[in-house]
């Protein structure tokens, strides 16, 4: 201990302390970040190899079973329908890279025709939601945005935020942001309820209302922000940060200028 305190004025001491602090911060982060994320699943490395007709066997069966019946690593795909495949593969969520609190969206590696082949195969396992056609999710009524907003605030904004920016769920799970999700995928997500999202089948939310919600989400993603920067549309937290840094921060900088002594003609 004595040795340590003798060296605390060493020029490198500050650096050492800084390194310790960084290491501690990193360690804490690793400890609190959802743990499973760290381990990579080597078995899914094989997804790099694409094969036309045996796509499922190659890319999906390791988790979902050779016949899509499900294993301990992945749920049964019987009855999930073609919409689920189009959503999961089309948004890059499937094939999953690694197990974790939630499977994130990532770059999709399958061309659309292969996704369609996969979807046809899974759809043949059992009846389920069908990939929507373009006129199902494309709105032409200008009033759909307002109606969709009302539906969105009842059914969606509690998780996805008022502007579709996403939000936190329990234990590291989250509702993703919807800004860059395509209308078809938004529609399919409502049909199928991917991962922990509940589904909104046609029986409780008919096609027309899904279309209105899609119209609202797309409108919001592209809507201008009349008042200036939207600060992420995350509510008062980012507004508070901005107010402190660019409001009070700038004002304090100005105050320093106001109060500072003017430079003297010559230094004595």
């Amino acid at each position: 201990m004595k040795k340590l305190s003798a060296r605390r004025r060493h020029p490198l001491a500050a650096l050492v302390v800084l390194l310790f602090a960084l290491a501690a911060t990193g360690g804490l982060y690793a400890a609190f970040a959802p743990a499973e994320k760290a381990q990579a699943d080597s078995s899914s490395q094989s997804l790099a190899i694409e094969q036309g007709k045996k796509l499922f066997a190659v890319g999906c069966s390791s988790c979902h079973g050779l016949n899509g019946q499900g294993t301990s690593d992945g749920p049964s795909l019987v009855g999930v329908g073609s919409a689920a495949v189009d959503f999961q593969v089309g948004t890059g969520r499937m094939p999953a890279q690694q197990p974790g609190a939630q499977v994130p969206a990532k770059r999709n590696i399958y061309p659309q025709d292969q996704i369609d082949q996969l979807a046809a195969y899974v759809a043949s396992l059992g009846p389920g939601p069908v990939t929507p056609t373009k006129d199902q999710y494309t709105s032409s009524d200008p009033n759909d945005v307002a109606a969709g907003g009302e539906l969105f605030r009842t059914n969606c904004s509690q998780c996805h935020n008022f502007a579709g920016k996403g939000g936190a769920l329990t234990n590291g799970k989250y509702a993703p942001a919807l800004d860059s999700t395509s209308p078809r995928h938004i529609y399919e997500a409502m049909q199928t309820g991917p991962q922990n999202m509940p589904s909104f089948p046609d029986s409780v939310m008919p096609e027309k209302q899904k279309r209105q919600i899609v119209a609202y989400v797309r409108h919001t993603a592209e809507a201008p922000s009349p008042g200036g920067m939207d600060l992420g549309s995350l509510g008062p937290v980012t507004e508070g940060l901005f107010g402190w840094i660019f409001g009070l921060g700038v004002l304090i900088a100005v105050a320093i200028w106001v109060a500072a002594h003017t430079t003297k003609a010559k230094k004595s």
Partner: peptide, 12 residues
């Protein structure tokens, strides 16, 4: 009966 996540008050 409606709500949005990120339901925070102003910073103070």
């Amino acid at each position: 009966d409606q709500v949005s996540t990120d339901a925070q008050p102003d910073w103070y």
